[in-house]
Amino acid sequence: MIRLALPEDRDRFRTLQAGDRVLLSGILYTGRDAAHERLLLTLRGGEPLPVDLRGQTIYYVGPCPAPPGFAVGSAGPTTSGRMDFATPDLLRYGLAGMIGKGKRSPEVVAAIRETGAVYFGATGGAGALLAGRIRECRTVAWPDLGTEAIHRLVVEDFPVIVLVDSRGEDLYRSAAARRTP
């Protein structure tokens, strides 16, 4: 099992291979549909983003509200493909990593290869389990978006698998290739 500290270990993203199991500790930023629309508009307008995402990892999640005594409610990955429209721009701007579930578009895979980024998968549907690995959750941009705002998470041993590595190797494609000889 590989352990990475974020954002410090982003330079090691290029050494990861599709299928590697990784435990992430450190900082993640959340963002999903509505935040991505605003991020893209801001980037294209030449304005600074409300959070400096260069070298950071974004987690596609809209968490549940935290019950008393919890840092966050249930918080599993949402479908990444809905963020594909904004992802190549974000990667070229400097985003280093993404966590979600499901396939990415060829344009996103090409941008991952071009920029040396990595796309991780977390277990879809395991929101309660993953919430247990989140120590802090604080809203840092666009609070009007509610669950869709950008939150800064502090995670500890957050379990992921490398779905697309920096060479563009795609675990879903190799899984499909294995079952259609």
């Binding site: 549940c64 919890f70 409610g73 599993g76 949402t78 929101g127 309660a128």
Partner: peptide, 8 residues
């Protein structure tokens, strides 16, 4: 823990 199975 009384958490939803899934955040959605």
């Amino acid at each position: 823990d009384g958490l939803p199975i899934c955040q959605d």
